[in-house]
Design a protein around this nucleic acid. Structure first.
Length: 832
RNA sequence: GCUCGGAUGGCGGAACUGGUAGACGCACAGGACUUAAAAUCCUGCGGGCCGAAUAAGCCCGUGCCGGUUCGAUUCCGGCUCCGAGCACCA
């Protein structure tokens, strides 16, 4: 570490410290000295390496908002703290820079998205550097850089080789305004923005994420993630164990396959329902019913998904005229068509058990279908299907179920439930059912009709087959185009660039390039790996470097990526793991979602509300250390909390008091700081502070760490002789939070090296407790008095003193009991 | 409807494994310094009994109702409200 260039500290005005000068000085120092460069130093054992990662931003034209520094400051505090604790820290930053806004701007202005993107990145980098984050900027990545997306394309080829990428004609979410299709995961967000999304069959690239459904579900158990996020992923994957059961038709050889998670209720299946789009719906309908069925199917096909769910309150449907045979009871049951059954889930057909399913119950009531109770709750009056007002849950004993009667159906789902197991085994023996596991998770729709994305390294041969571009020709870069506008026909703007599209296959025959591009999520699926080895042109990430740093120890970002990026990245990572290209089964061991910062009016910040706080302005007025400290002081990291500029003023005042604690009016070391032995009281103040701050950083309770620093400064300010042994370590405690001010004061204290790698102070447990304690005196549990005693005073003495102190409360009353908690309290329980 | 969070002064929030509720900060009020202001410093600041004021004391108080306990912001049962997510998933 070399010395800071300008070692003379800037002369601030009396009283106030010159934050802008100090912050600039140290930012330049860190930059020039590459203070935070991370190296794969073998001296650090695995448990002394720490990879702390932020979700990299999309560099929008608007620049940083105050939400960004929240998570970034939290990780920066951790990074700086861990370095001081002797860890080798990897703390990188980069840009998730492909995406629609730059492209839409290009459509409007004709400016190439690469130019807009570069400007935006420069602005983001400038802003982040102004906040003094200790990133290793040599590891910066940019997903739109061909050197980066070369490897995104390469990983896609590995997926393709493994058979995990395929092209299919599927009903997709087509958005006419955006001129592109969207992933299921993206739909809610765009609909919220006011775009329409319709279902339309198109030929699209898909990634077989469903092949990993079980592992993505299972491995959630080993992750230290917020329970809510894990639950969202579990629900999104939506695993359900059950059976596919075949119902034969009365007058036909056709069979209808239904999926159910409750085969134990099969004797109560009094009708079947097919989704309107079900392939058999047309074929089984009787001539007589044909007109009504066709009308119904036409009507539902015109409804959007939204309309179908909004109208969910009122069930609708029509009878096909056909009947099926219940394979368990042998009874004839009608087959209906209704849009409350979805074609996209299970087999698109259900056996309806109205007595034990609310939806089936509503439907049966409306169309006067038979309701038959087959599970009787134990210890209750027998259920009467005629008078039932709602469907009953299925926990109880099987009834009306022939030889299954009496078997218990408990709260267990799947085959652990004895009733389900018994019925399935029996149906399997008859050859009319098989155990099945269904997932809600669909394969990932991976192509977009956009310009500003990674081109697929694929070629369509004349014969309709597909050939992959040889790895040695990667990256396959984007051509320049005249217009960035989507063709609107479902083709990307690339389709109109003849010289790019027209190419030759390996045999030299004319062929066409794939013109779709990858979705924005592609680049973020593996960026955390590239940080481990960002400049490698030979491999996407050297396995040695990967195993040096991975997995990510701490990942901080917004909760909005719960089922998007966080699921996609886990999927890619598992594929790479199977290819033995990475060594860890999961990429992010610990995840923390920072809370949203609301405007001063406690509403979500938005331009239209006019409540957006611009970090540049806050930095200009109060400095980076103030905004860092304020955002951490607002409240718990994970909590949603409103911005309050007065609060910034508060921490700014605190930093001024810190400055005045160490300096005189000329900005030199204060004469009050002296090399004298501190009193035991001051030692206790210091060690309590070290302990509180250490514990709080470890548990990410930055708000209470800061309040402890304030307490420390409040205690030391009135003291005229400030022992160096007390005040010097405090600067190291402050350093992760307010690094510029801390570096400056550290230098003023006479140090010639940056404090970035100074050992974080350790505390002596004996010095974190007082030798005098306050004993709380209660009578009947109510606080009546207090007692100052030496720590460890024994029971009889304490109780004796307590009784004297609260004599007026216990006089003349019978003492029933005395509760004594050493060094804490005495509670005297009296009668009356 | 289901799942997951949450509810503490005027405000943001603190409170270890059940043991002094309101740390720290903001706002506000009063005072010192100043010709004045800013900055800074000092004092007060949950509600009530409570008044011109002082000191002390007592009562109530952590969304609501109930329980366990010597003692509950903390544990248990029931409810209300707010936020987030999912939503006809068979």
């Amino acid at each position: 570490m070399s010395e800071p260039k300008n070692f003379e500290s800037p002369k601030p005005e009396p009283v106030r410290y010159n934050f802008s000068q100090i912050e600039k000085k140290w930012q330049e120092f860190w930059d020039e000295n590459k203070t935070f460069r991370a190296m794969e130093d073998p001296k650090f054992p695995k448990d002394k390496r720490y990879y702390v990662l932020d979700m990299f931003p999309y560099p929008s034209g608007a620049g940083l908002h105050v939400g960004h520094p929240e998570g970034y400051t939290a990780t920066d505090i951790l990074a700086r703290y861990k370095r001081m604790k002797g860890f080798n820290v990897l703390h990188p930053m980069g840009w998730d820079a492909f995406g629609l806004p730059a492209e839409q701007y290009a459509v409007k202005t004709g400016v190439h998205p690469a130019i807009t993107t570069k400007d935006n990145i420069d602005n983001f980098r400038r802003q982040l550097k102004m906040l003094g984050f200790s990133y290793d900027w040599d590891r910066e990545v940019d997903t739109t850089n061909p050197k980066y997306f070369k490897w995104t394309q390469w990983i896609f080829l590995q997926l393709h080789k493994k058979g995990l990428a395929y092209i299919a004609e599927v009903p997709v979410n087509w958005c006419p305004e955006l001129g592109t299709v969207l992933a299921n995961e993206e739909v809610p967000e765009q609909v919220e923005k006011g775009f329409t999304v319709i279902r339309k069959p198109m030929r699209q690239w898909m990634l077989k994420i469903t092949a990993y459904a079980d592992r993505l579900l299972e491995d959630l158990n080993i992750l230290d993630w917020p329970e809510s996020i894990k639950e969202m992923q579990r629900n999104w994957i939506g695993k359900s164990e059950g059976a596919e059961i075949f119902f034969s038709l009365k007058n036909s050889d056709e069979k209808i396959k239904v999926f159910t998670t409750r085969p134990d209720t099969i004797f109560g299946a009094t009708y079947l329902v097919l989704a309107p789009e079900h392939l058999l719906a047309d074929r089984i309908t009787t001539d007589k019913q044909k007109p009504v069925v066709e009308k119904y199917r036409r009507e539902t096909s015109l409804k959007s998904d939204m309309e179908r769910t909004e109208l969910a309150k009122e069930k609708s449907g029509v009878w096909t005229g056909a009947c099926a045979i219940n394979p368990a009871s042998g009874e004839e049951i009608p087959i209906w068509i209704a849009d409350y059954v979805l074609v996209s889930y299970g087999t698109g057909a259900i056996m309806a058990v109205p007595a034990h399913d609310t939806r089936d119950f509503e439907f049966a009531r409306k169309f006067d279908l038979e309701i038959r109770v087959v599970i009787q709750p134990e210890g209750e009056a027998p259920l009467d299907s005629k008078t039932m007002t709602e469907a009953h849950s299925h926990i109880g004993v099987m009834v009306n179920s022939k030889n299954f009667n009496g078997i218990k159906s408990n709260e267990e789902k799947g085959f652990k439930n004895p009733a389900i197991l018994a019925v399935v085994e029996s149906l399997e023996k008859q050859g009319v059912a098989s155990r099945t596991i269904h997932y809600k998770l669909r394969d990932w729709l991976f192509s977009r009709q956009r310009y500003w994305g990674e081109p697929f390294p694929l070629i369509h041969r004349q014969d309709g087959t597909i050939e992959t571009v040889d790895e040695k020709y990667l990256p396959l870069t984007l051509p320049t185009v005249e217009s960035y506008k989507p063709a609107g026909t479902g083709e990307s703007p690339l389709a109109s660039i003849a010289e790019w599209v027209n190419t030759a296959d390996q045999s030299g025959k004319p062929a066409l390039r794939e013109t779709n591009t990858m979705p924005q999520w592609a680049g973020s699926c593996w960026y955390y790996l590239r940080y481990c080895d960002p400049h490698n042109d030979a491999v996407f990430c050297d396995p040695k470097k990967e195993s040096y740093w991975m997995p990510v120890d701490m990942y901080v970002g917004g909760g909005e990526h719960a089922v998007l990026h966080l699921l996609y990245a886990r999927f890619w990572h598992k594929v790479l793991f199977d290819l033995k290209l990475v060594n860890t089964p999961e990429p992010f061991m610990k995840l923390v979602n920072q809370g949203i910062i609301l405007g001063e009016d406690s509403q979500k910040m938005s331009k239209s509300r006019g409540n957006v706080v611009n970090p540049d302005q806050i930095i200009e007025k109060y400095g980076a250390d103030s905004i860092r400290l304020y955002e951490m002081f607002m409240g718990p990291l994970t909590q949603t909390k409103p911005w309050n500029t007065n609060g910034v003023e508060g921490v700014y005042r605190f930093l001024q008091r810190v400055w005045r604690l160490y300096t005189d009016e000329q900005g030199n070391l204060s004469g009050k700081i002296q090399d004298v032995d501190p009193s035991i009281e001051l030692m206790r103040v210091l060690h309590k502070t070290i302990r509180k701050i250490t514990d709080d950083i470890e548990s990410l309770s930055f708000n209470t760490a800061i309040s402890q620093m304030m307490i420390f400064v409040n205690e030391l300010t009135p003291i005229e002789i400030r022992p160096r042994k007390i005040v010097e370590p405090f600067i190291l405690l402050l350093a992760p939070f307010a690094p510029h001010l801390a570096e400056e004061i550290w230098a003023i204290l006479g140090h010639t090296k940056s404090l970035a790698y100074q050992a974080f102070p350790e505390y002596d447990t004996a010095l974190t407790v007082d030798d005098e304690v306050t004993i709380v005196l209660q009578v009947n549990g109510k606080l009546r008095d207090k007692l100052q005693l030496k720590k460890g005073t024994d029971k009889s003495i304490t109780e004796q003193m307590a009784k004297e102190k609260v004599a007026s409360w216990i006089q003349g009353k019978e003492i029933l009991k005395v509760v004594f908690v050493p060094d804490k309290l005495v509670n005297i329980v009296v009668k009356g």
